[in-house]
Design a protein around this nucleic acid. Structure first.
Length: 254
DNA sequence: AAGACACGCAACCGCTCCGTT
DNA sequence: AAACGGAGCGGTTGCGTGTCT
């Protein structure tokens, strides 16, 4: 036996909301809040709508902090990067974009970004990296666990990855370029950065972290990693609060 | 000018999650 | 522990509008 429906669909209005209905819902929520019960809200507000419909209308359209208008290039990059990393978890992705709703993000992805993304992936080519110009990029982000991280690869090939000062533990570990063999690598493509460091870590390395983060970069790159600190490999997911300097010789996908 | 088609977006549907009893 | 029910989520649909032929 299936679940009983949340409301009698023969007795509620469906389809597009009228300006009058919007006004009633907006006024009711602004004056009384949601009351923590969307199912009961339409009756209290005097709306012939399903509670779910009211919730959706408020969250996706009437909420005062909704950001209207087209998505920026930066927002596109954030969405694409997060999609690569965590898939179609639209509510999580939307939480990274001020004023955007999951429905908004989902629609934007399905109508525009999906095509753009698949096209750019199809056009990817592998080039030899022995003579590449060092990449330069940086990013800031808010992670699902309310952490903040920054990445930077500078012209002298330094990765700077640190926590926001007032959050989480902080530790600094410096990896000398001299200690890193040519087998260490960073690979960059249009959606992902991978880094491996195949040497012993310093004694003060913190191998305890094993969090699952979903970092991204402003320029659309997604950080990813392989291996773990325990066996001497560098994992982006495990370097919160650390600084690493390294040489890289790698493949670069553009 | 009109019909066909493509696109964007609001809204709905049905499922899972999670708190409460 | 199980059942229940509301909230939240992602997939999908349908309609309005713009563009093309």
């Amino acid at each position: 036996m299936g679940r009983s429906p949340c409301c009698d669909k023969t007795k509620v209005k469906r389809g597009p909301w009228s300006p009058e209905e919007d006004t009633i819902l907006r006024n009711h929520i602004q004056n009384h809040g949601t009351g923590g019960n969307w199912i009961a809200l339409p009756h209290k507000a005097g709306l012939k709508r399903c509670g779910k419909s009211c919730r959706l209308r408020w969250l996706n359209y009437l909420r005062p902090d909704i950001k209207l208008g087209g998505f920026t290039e930066e927002e596109d990059n954030i969405i694409s990067s997060l999609y690569v990393n965590i898939g179609s978890r639209w509510s999580v992705i939307a939480s990274h974009l001020q004023g955007r709703t999951d429905n908004d993000v989902k629609n934007h992805w399905n109508t525009k970004l999906k095509k753009k993304f698949s096209t750019s992936s199809r056009n990817s080519t592998i080039i030899n990296t022995t003579s590449i110009t060092p990449m330069q990029f940086s990013s800031s982000l808010s992670l699902p666990k309310q952490e903040f991280a920054q990445y930077q690869i500078t012209n002298n090939s330094t990765l700077d990855y640190s926590t926001k000062p007032d959050q989480q533990q902080q530790s600094t570990i410096s990896y000398s370029n001299d200690n890193i063999s040519n087998s260490n690598s960073i690979s960059i493509n249009n959606s992902m950065v991978s880094l491996q460091m195949n040497q012993d870590l310093p004694d003060n390395a913190n191998p305890a972290r094993n969090d699952d983060y979903a970092p991204w970069c402003d320029n659309g790159l997604v950080m990813d990693g392989e291996g773990d600190l325990l066996n001497g490999k560098f994992d982006f997911d495990q370097v919160i609060g650390e600084v690493a300097n390294f040489n890289y010789s790698s493949q670069l996908w553009l």
